[in-house]
């Protein structure tokens, strides 16, 4: 009979989280991710000509509703995704940041077009050289302006990214045995 070694060590926080995610929450996580990725509601943040293509993407020909993302919300409180469509001037930057802050978690940002992604042709002091100076950007979509297909491609990339996320690490679930911590 072999003697089993007793490891009387408390599991670390990381191990606990790994256990909860792997054993308890793997399917729930994928369900949450599926729900999130199939209903990305964008906040309508059109700043310039790219917004026209964004509207075209939402319209019937390209039909963003196929991805569950057709509901362009006027209020950031109801939105998950911010499609920054157009060049962002320095004066507009605080407004963009405020709207981003008002969006509830989880939230994502797509920088649509050359100007939003890096300043594009406007390499001047008045234009923010890429909205990633102000908000964290998830997907960059180049083009001037991008075709609706390109924007849909960007949204599909974002959906892929969402499926790889771990909602349990974002404090979405409450564990009663964790309340002491």
């Amino acid at each position: 009979m072999t003697q089993l070694t007793v490891v009387d060590k408390e599991p670390t926080r990381v191990e606990e989280e790994e256990f909860e995610r792997g054993l308890l929450l793997s399917t729930v996580e994928s369900l949450v991710n599926w729900a999130r990725k199939s209903s990305i509601w964008p906040v309508s943040f059109g700043l310039a000509c790219c917004a026209i293509e964004m509207m075209a993407t939402g319209a019937s020909r390209f039909d963003l509703a196929r991805f569950g993302a057709e509901v362009f919300r006027g209020s950031p409180r109801q939105a998950d995704l911010m499609i920054v469509a157009g060049r962002l001037s320095r004066k507009m930057a605080p407004v963009l940041r405020r709207i981003y802050d008002q969006m509830p978690d989880p939230k994502w940002v797509i920088a649509m077009g050359a100007c939003a992604s890096c300043g594009g042709i406007f390499n001047t002091y008045t234009i923010v050289q890429g909205v990633d100076e102000v908000v964290p950007v998830d997907v960059y979509v180049p083009g001037c302006p991008p075709r609706p297909e390109q924007l849909i491609h960007g949204i599909m990339l974002l959906q892929e990214k969402i499926t790889k996320e771990h909602p349990s690490k974002q404090g979405l679930f409450h564990f009663p045995w964790r309340s002491k911590a």
């Binding site: 050359a114 992604s117 890096c118 300043g119 594009g120 042709i121 890429g130 998830d138 997907v139 960059y140 979509v141 180049p142 083009g143 001037c144 991008p146 075709r147 297909e149 390109q150 491609h153 960007g154 990339l157 990214k161």
Partner: peptide, 30 residues
């Protein structure tokens, strides 16, 4: 490619037809 506005001036300027604009447009990335 983010700066590029796909205006095609490079192709127009090129005397050797070395840089030309193709049809590929799916360029988004993380």
């Amino acid at each position: 490619m983010l700066r590029c506005i796909f205006c095609g001036y490079c192709e127009e300027a090129c005397p050797e037809e070395a840089i030309v604009m193709g049809k590929q447009y799916e360029l988004a990335s993380y």
